[in-house]
């Protein structure tokens, strides 16, 4: 179990380090970097490689934004297997990432209780 923590740390860290390389060497904005990683997660899911990564590294694979591409793709593929072409579409509507709903809810709550502050300390 301790090893899962170690793997989570390393796998998560490496995904973030790749993101940093995209920003610094690739001169990408954060928006471009995150979009790239999401597509990368979706491709890995399509090749069936992301689920093994989650089994191996736990939160190291579910917490980075790549998992968002994975969960959407995974959902679409599972439904496609069951319902064929229609499933490709309906799958995505059934399995959205909890990240979106959580961000929407907490964004709303955050907007109600916080104010933007410019102080650096």
């Amino acid at each position: 179990m301790v090893m899962t923590f170690v793997f989570a740390f390393f796998v998560g860290g490496i995904i973030c380090a790749i993101g940093q390389l995209l920003m610094d060497f690739g001169k990408l904005t954060p928006g471009h970097t995150l979009s790239t990683l999401v597509v990368a997660g979706a491709i890995l899911a399509g090749m069936g490689l992301y689920e093994p990564l989650i089994n191996f590294a736990g939160a190291g694979a579910t917490v980075p934004i790549t998992s968002f591409g994975n969960s959407l793709t995974h959902g679409a593929i599972v439904e496609a297997e069951k319902h064929g072409l229609v499933g490709v579409l309906t799958g995505m509507f059934e399995v959205t990432s909890s990240g979106i709903s959580a961000a929407v809810v907490f964004g709303f709550i955050g907007a109600l209780i916080f104010k933007p502050k410019g102080n650096v300390d």
Partner: peptide, 28 residues
């Protein structure tokens, strides 16, 4: 941290929540 805090879903949350807080002044 740069990408260290941008790439995890917390960074996605931060992007949504910071925009929400920022634009509160223009109404819900």
């Amino acid at each position: 941290a740069g990408a260290g805090s941008a790439v995890p879903v917390t960074g996605f949350g931060n992007a949504v929540i910071s925009a929400a807080i920022e634009h509160r002044s223009e109404g819900l």
